[in-house]
Amino acid sequence: MSTVVVRGATKSFGRTAALDGVGFEAGPGVTGLLGPNGAGKTTLLRIIATVLAPDAGTVTLLGRDPARPGERTGIRERLGYLPQDPGFHRGFTVFEFIDYVAILKEQTDRRPRHDEVRRVIAETGLESVSAKRIRSLSGGMRRRVGLAQALLGRPDLLVLDEPTVGLDPEQRLRFREMISAAGEGRTVVMSSHQTEDITALCTRIAVIHQGRARFTGTPAELTAQAAGRVWTEGRRSPAALAAWGTGDGTYRNIGDPPPGAALTPPTLEDAYLLLMAAPS
C-alpha cells in the first residue's frame, strides 16, 4: 500500500510552472527523487510535507487528504520534514533547538519531551555536541541536527530534501547509515543530486525533469535501460552523447555505440544521463 500518492499535481509560481501534472507514489522504505536543479523536486517535496498545496491534482498522504484541515493536522502529527535550509536558530544549543521543535510539535509534557529529544540526539550521533551552540557546528553536524528534529515523534512519513548536500564523503556515508536505518518500518522520500546515494539507499526512484516524472521504478530498472549503450575506448568517441576520461587512461562513452565497441555494464548515472538527453 502506498503511503504517498500524488496524481496530476501542478504548481506554478507566477508564470513559472514548477510542476506540470506530475504523478508520484511512495511506500515503506526509501524512495528517491532524482533530477537537475529547477526540475521541481523541492516543490514536490514541499507538497508532500504539507508546506504547499498544489494548484490542481490530488494528494493522499498516510491515507488522508491534506486539503482537509482536520486531516492535514493528522498527517503532520505523523510526518517529519528536513528542508534544504532548516532555518536554525544558531544561538540555541543542539538540545535547545530540538527541544524547541518538539514544543512546536505540541509535545508539551516536559519530562517525556526531553526523553524524546535525548533519543533523537543519540540516534543521530549528536551526544557529544548536544550542549554546543548550533553556530559553532560544522555543516555536517548541522545536517544531523536537521535530521534529528525530523525524527521527533517517530514519524511514519519522513521527507528529506537533499539531506547529503554539502557533505564530504565520510559524512555522506554516515548519513546513508542513518537514512537507511530511518527507512526501516516507515516511508522515507528523499531528493538528491547524487546518483550514488540513490543507488545505495533507494528501493524505488522517480526522475523529475521540467516538472514531470520522466521515470518511476526501481534503480535496477532504470539502469537496465542503458544496457548496450555504454562502452570504453582509448579516445572520446564521436558517437557519444557524453564521454569522460577515466583513471585507467580510457574514455567511458555513453550513447549509441559504433560496431564492435567494447561494451561495459551501465551504472545508474549512465542511465540517468541518457534519460536526460532523450527528447521529452
Rank of each mutant, 00 (worst) to 15 (best):
T16Y: 08
A18S: 07
A18K: 03
G21F: 04
G23I: 06
P28C: 01
G29D: 07
L34Q: 06
G35C: 13
G35P: 12
G38H: 00
T42F: 07
L44E: 06
T50E: 02
T58I: 13
G63V: 03
R64N: 04
A67V: 09
A67S: 13
P69Q: 00
G70N: 00
E71C: 04
T73M: 09
G74N: 11
G74L: 15
G74Q: 15
G80K: 10
L82R: 03
P83Q: 09
P86M: 02
H89D: 14
R90D: 14
E96H: 06
I98L: 09
I98N: 11
L104D: 07
T108S: 12
T108V: 14
R111T: 13
H114P: 06
I121N: 01
E123M: 14
G125E: 03
G125N: 06
E127I: 00
E127D: 05
S128T: 11
A131E: 10
R133P: 05
S136V: 04
L137I: 12
L137H: 10
G139Y: 04
G140D: 01
R144G: 09
R144D: 05
A150M: 11
L151F: 02
R154P: 08
R154N: 15
L158I: 14
V159T: 00
D161F: 10
P163S: 06
L167F: 05
P169F: 02
Q171C: 05
Q171E: 15
L173G: 08
I179N: 01
G185I: 00
V188F: 04
S192H: 02
Q194T: 10
A200G: 09
L201E: 04
T203S: 14
R204K: 08
V207S: 12
Q210H: 14
A213Y: 08
G228D: 12
S237I: 08
A242I: 04
A242K: 12
T246E: 15
G247V: 13
G249T: 06
P258D: 06
A261M: 07
L263P: 09
P266L: 05
D270F: 02
Y272G: 10
L274M: 06
A278W: 02
A278N: 02
